[in-house]
Structures are given as C-alpha cells and as structure tokens.
C-alpha cells in the first residue's frame, strides 16, 4: 500500500500555492492535513503527479473575529479550532462537532479546509457550514471568490472549487445571543462515520423559533439543509408536537443515500430520531 511517486513542493505562501496550482493544473493536488488524501494515495485511488503542501503557510492558519464575522483560515487544524476560545464563543457548533471527527491523532493533523474541499458526504464540517450559513472563500490568480456554503457543496466529493483555486478561509456570522447551536450524530462506534448526523442553528424570539437551519450529513450525496423542516419550525415554540412534525418533515424531504451498512430506510428512520432528539435537547436547554 504505497503511493505513486510524485513531485513534492512545499508552498511558503498562499500566493505561491496559487501560482503552483496554475502551473501544474489538474496534475497537482493540494496537501493540507493529508488525513484523507494520504490514505487515498496509499490505495492508489488518488495519484497526483505533484503535491503542493500548504501545511506550512502561516497565513492560512489564523482565526479572527471582526465585525461579527468569524474567519477561520483553511489551514487550521481541527485541534486548533477545537481549542480556540474565539471559536468556542462565536461558533460553538464547531467545538461541539469536532470531537466527533475520527480520533485525537487525526484531529491533530486534519484541517478545516481539507475537509471542506474534499466534501465527503459523511463529513461533519460541511453540514456545520450549511447550518452556520458560512461562506467559503477560494482564491486563484484572478482573485477571491466568496461562495455560500449552500452553493459550494454540490455532491459526493464534488464542490464548486475550480482546479486553479485554493480554499483559503471560511467566514461565518458570530453566534447571536438568541441563537442556539446544536450538533449530534449517531454512529456505531465512537469516531466512526455517522449513520445520521445533524448540525442545527436555531434563532428564537419571544419563545418562538424565528429561524432554523437544520443541516444533515452522512445521509445523502452531500451535506444537506432541510429547508422545509426549518420553515415548519418558524413561528412555533418547541412543543413535542411540533418537534415530531418537524422530524417527520426532515425525514421526508431529504433524498437519502445508503452507505455500506445502512439502507435508505435506516437513514430516514435515524434522521427522524436524531432530529427529534436534538430539538428536544434544545427545548430542554431553553427551559
């Protein structure tokens, strides 16, 4: 299980990385944390001729909050995000989600940008981006593009990222005082891919839900926002009846994809249960 031979280039800056992408085109691949890419290369299912290592680029590893917008550099490792007080305060959803990602040693190396660019349908972070209404910032020699998360993730391992673009950062609104972040997933073993997982951002006013972004992962071809379920919550308080209804709507609107062990019906059932349990937890926390 040894990869193809490749050319290795360590990029010292974002601009250098972008220039290298331009130079090597489709034969090049970005190496960030490598926690998905390296095993895929070992299996010879990914065979880039050139690896552009961006893991040393300090400017991609910053976390900043300004004007109510949290910006996380794509090169930040999971562990950096998890341990960031700034993230804990302004986007607690991410701190709830990251402990579910694989195990410690993987979280010490894997990066936010790497996970988003890969767009594994079972990955936790794309769903978080949907729920947080985040913007994915990509950059090429032509400058930056800011892509709403909802447009960025387009299918299994498929995103809006062009060949010559580097994912450089994500931006998301700081959590408001009337917002609740909730993350949860159901898996067979700790650290496994989920059977169904959810990342919810709820906004409440006067005891009623004013906005609800219910995002799911590991259930479809990519992370998915249950918009009808979200709309059904708006204007309601979290009664057990509305929770049941919304759980049914979520389970009804998602196009479920089977995985190796769980068929579509299983995904649907667990999504319904997951939604109910998450909303119930939120309700319990509010009171």
């Amino acid at each position: 299980m040894k990869p193809h031979l490749f050319q290795y280039i360590r990029a010292e800056s974002t601009q250098a990385a972008i220039a290298l992408l331009e130079e090597f085109g489709e034969d090049a691949q970005i190496l960030a944390g490598g926690q998905s890419l390296v095993p895929t290369m070992a299996l010879r299912m990914a065979n880039p001729e050139t690896l552009i290592d961006i893991s040393a680029i300090a400017e991609l590893q910053t976390i900043e909050l300004s004007d109510g917008v949290l910006t996380i550099g794509a090169g930040c490792r999971y562990v950096d995000v998890l341990n960031s007080d700034l993230v804990a305060k302004s986007a607690p959803l991410l701190c709830q989600a990251i402990p579910y990602i694989a195990h410690d040693a993987i979280r010490n190396r894997g990066t936010i940008g790497g996970s988003l660019a890969l767009a594994d349908p079972a990955s936790e972070l794309p769903a978080c981006m949907l729920a947080l209404d985040a913007v994915i910032i990509v950059e090429s020699k032509d400058g930056q593009r800011k892509i709403p998360a909802g447009d960025f993730f387009q299918g299994t391992y498929f995103t809006d990222l062009a060949e010559n673009e580097l994912l450089v950062a994500i931006e998301m609104p700081e959590i408001a005082s009337n917002q609740i972040h909730k993350f949860y997933e159901i898996s067979r073993r700790s650290g496994d891919y989920a059977i169904s997982g959810g990342a919810f951002v709820l906004t409440h006013e006067d005891g009623c839900i004013a906005d609800a972004r219910l995002a799911y992962f590991a259930v479809s071809d990519c992370a998915v926002l249950a918009t009808k379920a979200g709309e059904a919550l708006v204007g309601n308080s979290l009664s057990s009846e509305i929770i049941e209804t919304v759980s049914d709507i979520a389970a009804g609107e998602i196009e479920f994809f089977a995985d190796l062990y769980n068929g579509e019906a299983m995904k649907k059932q667990l999504t319904k249960v997951l939604t109910r349990r998450m909303l119930t937890k939120i309700h319990d926390g509010m009171n």
Partner: peptide
C-alpha cells in the same frame, strides 16, 4: 446485530 437488522426486526424500517 447491526442497528439496521435490529430496527428491521422491530418493524421500524
């Protein structure tokens, strides 16, 4: 005894 087999036996899926 996978979760799917258990829920199938329970008639939930």
């Amino acid at each position: 005894l996978t979760p799917e087999r258990i829920l199938t036996a329970l008639g939930k899926i």
